[in-house]
Nucleic acid binder design. Structure first.
Length: 645
RNA sequence: GCUCACGUAGCUCAAUAGGCAGAGCGUAUCCUUGGUAAGGAUAAGGUAACCGGUUCGAAUCCGGUCGUGAGCUCCA
């Protein structure tokens, strides 16, 4: 320490990232320090990172350290910002409705929420407005948020006195050694680890978005609380942009586009059971065609198994014990049957029709299998979550030492497929669920196999504890919809159980029977879900190869109808999905209609085109491309279709 | 399944302290033959999701059922 003055003058040195170092007296808060070094930095900072930990700006500095300010642009900064907003929400609710118990109120990806128990007096959507007004008032009051460290006993006593039963439960569940902290702003105090903004006035724009139910601690056996969702931004413009994003997302909603583009429908007569319209089924068949080509190349054999199979088969597979509440049942000739919720038992029956040498494995059997699952009514969601869907399934029967290669093969295939459509995806490893069968050793073995595969290839993933299939752990591939909600699509499930249950075998090099290992896997996942995600991903503007109508011929007057018919015939016979709009409407009208229907190519034919045997090409995105020789255009569009552009 | 909300023409939406159900788009017919995002006229189209109650009278108020939306739980 450079100072040779008295010990009252002890100073600590703070390294401020991107600024330099500063010496201050111990006990100086970060806020004071920043005010000293740069008012601009102080204004932008929402929190700080000291030696890696996020702390509030009112934290006193006690020793030498490196410090980095955190702004709204940092994910952690936005979290702190919105976490404080959630406290302001809770305070506002407490002010308006005294008789309410608090649940939890964390920040989430685009905002925050807070759960409340209104004790039998649920609030309504309209009430959000006045709560929001009270929040604005609290922001205006610019109340400082004070961090309090208290003992477990103090905390319990305080929240018991306040009647905050949920908070008491949370405190009781905290580990012994954990520091208990609360944050106080004005008359409001909440159990919270923080950190928070220094004061409520730091919040600029708060907005409540919607009201929903949520079980206490996410458990359906617990009380249903009311959850208020909101968001907060430092600038009005950012909120407007976010609301615009939500608005745009609504336009891309596959349920809306499905209706507008005439792709599919749902009916009260069959909730959760999708109806594919002619245009929708075209897209699906193209996806399937691509799928068959790729699977054929990758050495898969295609099979098809029945939708209804005897109940006994499902008892043997474990579905009866572990999956019954999701299954539909029926009777045939007095015998109990089940509608298949999965394709595996069918594939296994086929496997069992033969004897296999170790040289025959891996045996890859693919099936576009229609399954039915009884999903709870509240979970249905357009094509994303339905009660009947087709899985692009495959079951790979293999030797234990083939696990790595086969998993790798499937992972590569998933990657190749998703890249064709330009999807970003992320991976989860799901482990043993509560309701499952098999020994701990087998689960351990299977889970380790998958995990070490991912680790070995340096593939980033997150672990989804307890979300595996009842017969084995799985690697899941998730895609995002237009609202950035994620949906599981591809999955690879490693299974040692079914081969055991069904007594599957192959003959090894030693001439003895051995147990094969099974891989259950899907690439698209469910055709319905993948289709829905594709619709939202493309906003309904499908690439040429998938477009239900690839080109519309638009004659300008009746005099071009003969030529239009000729053009149509030529393209149609080459396999192009082409229509003619020969209504007596103006060109502009027909073009508008084709644009709205997102048809990739419009071929305008007037007198000039008839005389020169050309078509005036208008491309969906690029607009008018001018006249092109009919033969040249035909070759071009066929080329693009074949390249799956 | 749970919480809150919603259900009016094929679609998007109006209306009224409870008092004959409306518009635009789309559809049909006719006029128009027009060169790159909406030409004009006329017409058809509704058991107000369904069932019940209150009322002289219910699309409107109340209850139930079904469906849908946001979320929770669950899952491809």
């Amino acid at each position: 320490m450079e100072s040779s003055r008295g010990c009252n003058d002890v100073r600590i040195e703070i390294q401020i990232k991107n600024w330099g170092s500063k010496k201050v007296a111990p006990g100086t808060t970060i806020m004071e320090l920043l005010g000293d070094v740069s008012p601009k930095l102080q204004k932008e900072a929402l929190a700080a990172r000291i030696n890696g930990d996020i702390v509030g700006l009112l934290t006193p500095l006690q020793e030498d350290c490196t410090l980095e300010t955190v702004s709204f642009d940092d994910p952690e900064g936005a979290e702190v910002y919105r976490h404080t907003a959630s406290h302001v929400l809770a305070q506002a609710v407490k002010r308006i409705y005294g008789n309410v118990r608090l649940g939890i109120g964390p920040p989430i990806s685009n905002g925050f929420y807070y759960d409340f128990d209104f004790k039998g007096n649920p609030i309504k959507t309209e009430d959000l407005e006045k709560i929001e007004q009270e929040m604005v008032q609290i922001v205006k009051e610019d109340l400082p948020l004070e961090r309090l460290e208290i003992s477990r006993e103090q905390a319990l006593q305080m929240f018991k006195e306040k009647g905050e039963d949920y908070k008491v439960e949370l405190i009781n569940d905290l580990d012994e050694g954990v520091k208990i902290t609360c944050y106080r702003q004005g008359d409001f105090i909440d159990l919270c680890a923080g950190p928070h903004l220094p004061s409520t006035g730091k919040l600029k724009v708060v907005k409540l978005l919607n009201l929903a139910g949520a079980y206490w601690r996410g458990d359906e056996r617990n009380a249903m609380l009311q959850r208020i969702y909101g968001t907060a931004f430092p600038k009005q413009k950012m909120l407007t942009e976010y609301l615009d994003f939500l608005e745009e997302a609504r336009k891309r909603d596959h349920r809306k586009l499905g209706r507008e583009l005439d792709l599919f429908s749902f009916h009260e007569e069959g909730p959760g059971f999708p109806f594919y319209h002619p245009k929708g089924i075209i897209i699906r068949r193209e996806l399937e065609k691509f799928w068959r080509e790729e699977h054929c190349k990758a050495g898969y054999l295609e099979i098809e198994t029945p939708i209804i199979l005897n109940k006994q088969l499902w008892e043997q597979s474990g579905h009866w014990d572990h999956y019954q509440e999701n299954m539909y049942f029926t009777k045939i000739d007095g015998q109990d049957y089940a509608i298949k919720p999965m394709n595996c038992p069918g594939a296994i029956l086929i496997y069992k029709t033969g004897m296999y040498s170790y040289r025959d494995l891996p045996l890859r059997m693919a099936e576009m299998g229609l399954v039915h699952r009884h999903e709870k009514s509240g979970t249905l969601h357009g094509l994303m979550r339905v009660r009947s869907f087709t899985q692009d399934d495959a079951h790979i029967f293999m030797l234990p030492e083939q696990i790595d290669d086969e998993v790798a093969g499937v992972m590569e295939m998933v990657d190749r497929f998703y890249k064709v459509f330009g999807f970003n995806y992320f991976i989860e490893l799901s482990t043993r669920p509560e309701k499952s069968m098999g020994s701990d050793e087998m689960w351990e073995k299977a889970t380790t196999a998958l995990q070490s595969f991912l680790d070995g290839k340096n593939i980033p993933y997150i672990i989804n504890e307890g979300d595996g299939a009842f017969y084995g752990p799985k690697i899941d591939f998730h895609l995002q919809d237009s609202l950035e909600r994620t949906w599981q699509c591809g999955t690879i499930q490693l299974d040692f159980q079914m081969p055991e249950k069904y007594g599957l075998s192959y003959i090894g090099a030693d001439g003895q029977k051995h147990r094969p290992v099974m891989l259950h896997r899907v690439i698209y996942g469910a055709m319905e879900r993948f289709f829905a995600l594709l619709i939202e991903h493309y906003g309904g503007a499908f690439p040429l190869w998938l477009a239900p109508v690839q080109a519309v011929i638009i004659p300008i007057t009746d005099r071009q109808h003969v030529y239009a018919a000729e053009v149509k015939k030529l393209l149609w016979e080459k396999g192009v999905r082409v229509e003619t709009d020969d209504r007596s409407e103006k060109v502009g009208y027909k073009i508008r209609e084709a644009q709205v229907q997102k048809v990739p190519y419009m071929l305008i034919v007037g007198e000039k085109e008839v005389n020169s045997r050309t078509v005036a090409v208008r491309q969906r995105e690029q607009g008018d491309l001018g006249a092109v020789d009919l033969q040249v255009f035909t070759n071009r569009i066929l080329g693009e279709i074949n390249q799956r552009k």
